[in-house]
Computed example of a mutant assay.
Amino acid sequence: MSIILSIETSTPICSVAIHKDAKLMANADLFLEKSHSNSLSPLIEQLLQHCDLKMSDLNAIAVSSGPGSYTGLRIGLSTAKGLCYALDIPLISISSLDSMTEQVINFHHDPSAFYIPMLDARRMEVFYKISDVNLSDIEQMSNLIIEEDSFNKYKEKKIYLFGNGAKKAWDVLTQQSENFILVNHVDPSAKYFGAIAFSKYNKEQFEDLAYFEPNYGKEFYSPKSKKKSFLDLNR
């Protein structure tokens, strides 16, 4: 038996869930901007109480590996690592894009289709990957500026587009093929970590607590402040 706590913080949604042998026991999604640092720990405590569990009952922690918000992913990972160290249990990483695909496959199970989750990366750029119905990679995670001929080689197949970057892509891609299908209201959620995390737990596919880092999708960029420092003013 395995009881796994899942944490998803790659978007503004702060999401936690508890699964027992891949079956959902409870989950909570908080749709509140910049809430991760203040809300994540209380959500975890409330969920454990709701399930009548203690921290010591957990067998592993699953956490989003990205892509997504730099700050959100850092908060989720630091919380997950802290729990793993304290409880001496393994860390499991789950792609935000894979969890979204798992969600869509539950409702649109099509062996002949491809699935493309998309997270908005501003303007016409998205983070994406392409999977089949078995979650096998057709294209690994990358970032892409959407153009009319994007995914042109797949246009004869039925393709599901979903995520907060999918609508702008769908508006462009449907000009080349009607086989692109938009699925609305699909966000990364810890609720859909269960099957993936359980499989990785059984295969002992764990992350190194000391060295594991999320895949942000892009190198983090921090703009230089335009304010003059004391040294600048005295040069």
Rank of each mutant, 00 (worst) to 15 (best):
K224A: 05
S2D: 09
E33N: 15
S189E: 08
S10N: 08
N38C: 13
Y128T: 12
K200P: 02
G66I: 05
S142E: 12
K158E: 10
Y216G: 01
K155F: 02
S69P: 06
S39N: 10
S93A: 14
S229E: 04
C84L: 07
F230H: 11
N234D: 11
I159C: 11
L173T: 05
F162V: 05
P90A: 03
L48M: 11
C51K: 07
S189L: 06
A28P: 00
F31E: 14
K200A: 08
I146F: 01
S189D: 07
D208Y: 06
L119T: 07
I61Q: 07
D208H: 07
A121Y: 01
N164T: 09
R123K: 11
G72I: 09
A195V: 14
I89P: 03
I94S: 05
K227L: 14
K54R: 13
L182N: 00
K23M: 13
R235W: 00
Q175E: 13
I3L: 10
S199V: 11
S2I: 02
Q103H: 14
Y85N: 05
S37Q: 01
S225A: 10
T101Q: 01
D137A: 15
N215H: 12
I130Y: 05
D88W: 00
S225E: 10
V63S: 06
F151E: 03
S229W: 03
S56E: 15
V172I: 15
A28S: 14
S136T: 09
G194C: 12
A86E: 04
T174Q: 14
S225R: 10
Y201W: 07
N179F: 04
S69V: 01
P67L: 11
S65A: 14
N106T: 11
S56W: 00
A169L: 07
K191T: 15
